[in-house]
Design a protein around this nucleic acid. Structure first.
Lengths: 229, 229
DNA sequence: TCGAAGGCGTTAGCAACGCTTTCTTAGCTG
DNA sequence: CAGCTAAGAAAGCGTTGCTAACGCCTTCGA
């Protein structure tokens, strides 16, 4: 048999799979872990302490998950993949996720900080690839906030949450705005690229193909600044 | 003296100004409302029933707030204003907001539905103005989810929440993506405008000022499609 | 004017909760 | 073997949400 502490943690995690943290009684935990009531308080001082420890373990699983995300040669696509795996984790472990991201007074700035660090390093890769048009810090906060926000919302209103569509929509909006990658509307940035090349040609300050005008004209076709559908 | 029901509701709202709903005991409510314990259960059946009633009142204030938002002739700007007033309400009434948007089993799809309806009508105005490039339904869900999500996140991690910057960032990203309005980077759309005029000039198919090239060159200055800041 | 009805206050108490105290036992270490 | 710490057993504390039983007093129709 394992140690008492491990049994308590395991029992709590198991109960957390079906009930909210607040609906779990310390007695139920003790029954399932086959320990006496005082054991919880000897080990964790507090019910909140126990929940914090469980949240910590959850964060470790969460971060391990995130670290497993492959690094492709498209850092922006990696951002989107990370977003999706985050959402999947939340939907798979609703009560645990709520426990992790809805602290009572204050609990784990450490683990959240680590998640932030992971995100920032992913963003740094975007920056290195010249695909970030927002201050790194703000970009990270925006993505993290939106990501957690979408998850909490999905857990609170599952019937209002329309499957992954809405997560994808917010994801592409935020990541797109931060990186400058327009997902569904790359024509705009293409337009800029071509316009820059064109100006370079016309002013004689940059090398550009002679067909710049034709390509620009074609690229701009139908892409107004405020498209009227 | 007012009726018992009103006093109970008022007392709960007052306590909710300083404590979380779960930290409020029914006895404290009764003390403050000068009623006996059974009164709560005669009136609301349940503590949850009382909290639901309070949440209802909160939604009414919330919706009244939203309805007070002026309708300017720029429906997209109105969307942004509504977003900001939503966030302000959440920050002003943290515990009430949490109560409203973190239901236990399920509570007010009615009030949330009304908020959604308000949002959809605002989006309909955008659509009428030709400033919506996303299905109405999905646009509404995306904005509402992101908005509530940012608020819940801000309440859970106030120290991590960097003032209104991040709300603005997510707001402009989501609303921008949904409407096609680029907020902070209007240079891009300006670039498109000028580029179109330029192409018109060069191909002789549109009237444009002779300084088009100069203006385009200036407008594009420093605005790369993948700016390396 | 009377009497039924219902809104409201009072007292007392239940079961469940988080948490504590006390005592005892088991197992390892020096 | 002595001494330490980890951990199981039992009992109980105070608070919580909630209920039962009773009685007052206003309202209102007959």
């Amino acid at each position: 048999m394992s140690t008492a502490r491990e049994r308590i943690l395991a029992a709590t995690e198991e109960l957390l799979a079906s009930k909210d943290a607040l609906a779990i009684s310390t007695r139920a935990i003790c029954d399932r872990a086959k320990v006496g009531m005082p054991e919880i308080y000897r080990q964790f001082g507090d019910k909140q302490g126990l929940l914090t420890a469980v949240a910590c373990i959850g964060f470790e699983r969460f971060l391990a998950n995130k670290r497993r995300n492959p690094m492709t040669d498209d850092p922006v696509a990696d951002l989107r993949t990370a977003w999706d795996s985050h959402v999947a984790f939340a939907l798979d472990n609703p009560h645990l996720y709520r426990l992790m991201f809805t602290p009572a007074p204050e609990s784990q700035p450490r683990a959240v900080g680590e998640a932030r660090a992971l995100l920032l390093s992913a963003l740094e890769r975007c920056r290195a690839a010249g695909r970030l048009r927002t201050p790194l810090e703000l970009a990270g906060q925006s993505i993290l906030t939106a990501n957690v926000g979408v998850c909490l919302m999905a857990l609170s209103f599952p019937e209002l949450y329309g499957a992954p569509e809405i997560s994808r929509s917010v994801r592409d909006a935020v990541i797109g705005a931060v990186t400058g990658d327009e997902r569904e509307d790359t024509r705009i940035t293409d337009g800029i690229v071509l316009a820059q090349a064109l100006v370079g040609t016309l002013t004689g300050t940059a090398p550009a193909g002679g067909d710049a005008i034709a390509r620009l004209s074609q690229a701009l076709q139908g892409s107004g600044p405020r498209g009227d559908e």
